[in-house]
Nucleic acid binder design. Structure first.
Length: 300
DNA sequence: AAAAGACGCAACCGCAAAAAA
DNA sequence: CTTTTTTGCGGTTGCGTCTTT
């Protein structure tokens, strides 16, 4: 017996979200918090399945999201974490405040992969690419398959498993399940990657030892570039002033505890418990957050 | 200036794990 | 313990935008 669909798909809307839908979803969650996603569309008056609502919220509407390109620091962290965790995008994302697994996955596939290849690093193993002339036939095949895969985007799950188990990352991936407390510094690792060493050869250092200069403007500088997307345009119209602010929100909305620390970066409380946004939500531009400190916090 | 191709990103799909009954 | 439901994840797709020819 097969699994039942997450919802009755008949009559449900698909595709890009409209401003109206976004509004309804935000309004609902701000009022009621994140409850059973299956029930959300019904209660919020949306013709979407719960899954779609959850995705929309977590990947786009969540207030604590950073928008815009990943900063160099974040990118380096992604590379590092990927070396340790593999394609565990959600795990990787959990170390990057305000970033979603989807965003990181996209960034990996569109930017970082190419970048690493250009640098002569295999994005899969994080080891130097073997020059074609000296490579063993089998290795050549592997490499070729990987290239084909990146072009066609088709994946054989079995092959993927086999391939993954061949990588030197396996041990570190297993270890990562124990949790990331013992994880070595991303910066340290990235330096090693640059030098052509695998990350599991890297000596561990403590999170508090991380000292990286970061440019606070870099993470937000290009956020306007995404404004051309339909979704961003949609959000231009959002009137957050419509949302009445409940005085006891902190008790009602459990999720709010986490989110609020970020919301307060771009939401002003003008005393009337109304939300004001500066700048308005569309591009989610936030005051710069020091990624370094938050990263360290998370590791601790 | 127009067409073709490449690129980037939001959203979808299916599977698996976790939780609930 | 088994079955059902819900949630989360990773891979993939579709389409709008940008770049190149």
């Amino acid at each position: 017996m097969g699994r039942q669909p997450c919802c009755d798909k008949v009559g449900l809307k698909k595709g890009p979200w409209t401003a109206e839908e976004d509004k309804k979803l935000i309004n609902f969650i701000l009022t009621n918090g994140q409850c059973c996603w299956r029930a959300v569309p019904k209660l919020a008056g949306l013709l979407r399945c719960g899954k779609s609502c959850r995705l929309r919220w977590t990947n786009y509407l969540r207030p604590d999201l950073k928008r815009g390109l990943l900063s160099d620091f974040e990118e380096q962290m992604v590379i590092d974490l990927h070396a340790q965790l593999g394609n565990r995008w959600s795990k990787i994302a959990s170390h990057l405040p305000g970033r979603t697994d989807n965003e990181i996955k996209n960034h990996w596939n569109t930017h970082i992969k190419k970048k690493l290849k250009k640098m002569g690093i295999d994005p899969l193993t994080h080891k130097p690419l073997i020059p074609a002339a000296t490579a063993q036939p089998q290795q050549q095949q592997c490499q070729q398959k990987e290239e084909e895969r990146s072009v066609t985007s088709s994946t054989d799950p079995e092959m993927e498993k086999t391939k993954e188990s061949e990588t030197p990352l396996e041990s570190s991936i297993v270890e990562s399940k124990e949790e990331d407390k013992s994880m070595s510094s991303p910066l340290e690792n990235s330096m090693e990657i640059m030098n052509g060493f695998c990350t599991d050869e890297v000596p561990l250092i403590q999170p508090h030892e991380i000292l990286v200069p970061c440019d606070p403007t870099s993470s937000t500088s290009s956020s306007s570039s995404s404004s051309s997307s339909a979704s961003s345009m949609i959000l231009e119209d959002l009137q957050f002033l419509d949302f009445d602010w409940h005085c006891d929100y902190s008790n009602d909305l459990g999720f709010w505890d986490d989110a609020f620390t970020s919301w307060d970066l771009f939401i002003e409380d003008d005393g009337d418990r109304k939300l004001t946004l500066d700048p308005p939500l569309p591009h989610y531009q936030r005051l710069p957050v020091d990624p370094e400190s938050r990263y360290s916090e998370q590791l601790l």
